[in-house]
């Protein structure tokens, strides 16, 4: 139980750290801490496979993506510069609305009754029957349990994820690839070197 509170504090602290740093690299580090802590929390919730997934995919892929993009954007411009603040008075309304949302969420957490599912009301023993030590391939939350569900009852979501990923790849290539050659379709025009092409976003607004 102490472990839970330690993990909770680290989680919150790293989240706050993430959003409050000026340099995005520091934010990425904070995010890393957040994800790892979250993986630990998953393990305490008997979701060991998801804990690993969290580490591998989130920290291993997504965070790396962030790091690479930071590197890409930093080249040739210098330290990250931000323009003038065009919405200086957003602080109070933002905090207010977030506080309201938070307040009501906590309120419902504290007061909403969690009604057990009908099968548990009928048979309370089931509530703990499937739990077991981690590593056992037949208990709740293990790889085997997860895989069995993924490929039998939840097959459709699995296929859909494949589709989503493919769409993402195509989208990324289209969006972030070289400047689209449609403008020169049918005409053979040599592309200007990168430095002479027009900026996508005009410099001064």
């Amino acid at each position: 139980m102490i472990g839970f509170y330690v993990l909770a504090i680290v989680l919150i602290a790293s989240a706050v750290f993430t959003i409050s740093q000026k340099s995005p690299v520091y934010s990425v580090v904070g995010l890393l801490a957040n994800f790892l802590t979250l993986a630990a929390l998953y393990v305490t919730l008997n979701a060991e496979f998801l804990g690993v997934v969290q580490v591998v995919i989130y920290t291993g892929a997504i965070l790396m993506l962030f790091v690479f993009v930071i590197a890409l954007l930093s080249s040739g411009i210098g330290p990250f510069t931000e323009g003038p603040d065009r919405l200086p008075r957003i602080l109070v309304p933002a905090l207010l609305s977030v506080a309201v949302a938070f307040g009501f969420l906590i309120f419902s957490v504290l007061h909403a009754p969690l009604t057990p599912m009908p099968e548990y009301v009928a048979d309370p023993a089931r509530a703990t029957s499937e739990l077991g030590p981690a590593g056992d391939p037949n208990v709740f939350g293990s790889v085997g349990d997860f895989g069995r569900a993924l490929f039998t009852t939840q097959l459709l979501p699995f296929e859909v994820t494949a589709f989503i990923l493919m769409v993402a790849v195509i989208g990324v290539v289209l969006i972030a690839g070289d400047a689209a050659p449609q403008a020169t379709r049918g005409r053979h025009v040599a592309r200007k070197p990168a430095a002479q092409r027009e900026p996508i976003v005009k410099a001064s607004k």
Binding site: I62, L65, F66, V69, L72, L73, I77, F80, T81, E82, G83, A168, V169, G171, V172, I175, A176, R197, P199, I200, V201, A203, S204
Partner: peptide, 18 residues
């Protein structure tokens, strides 16, 4: 995230401010 970062990259590739 992939697509979002792709957009960020393409929008801010040559911008003065991020």
């Amino acid at each position: 995230v992939a697509i979002g970062l792709a957009i960020v990259v393409s929008v801010f590739r040559r911008a003065q401010n991020v």
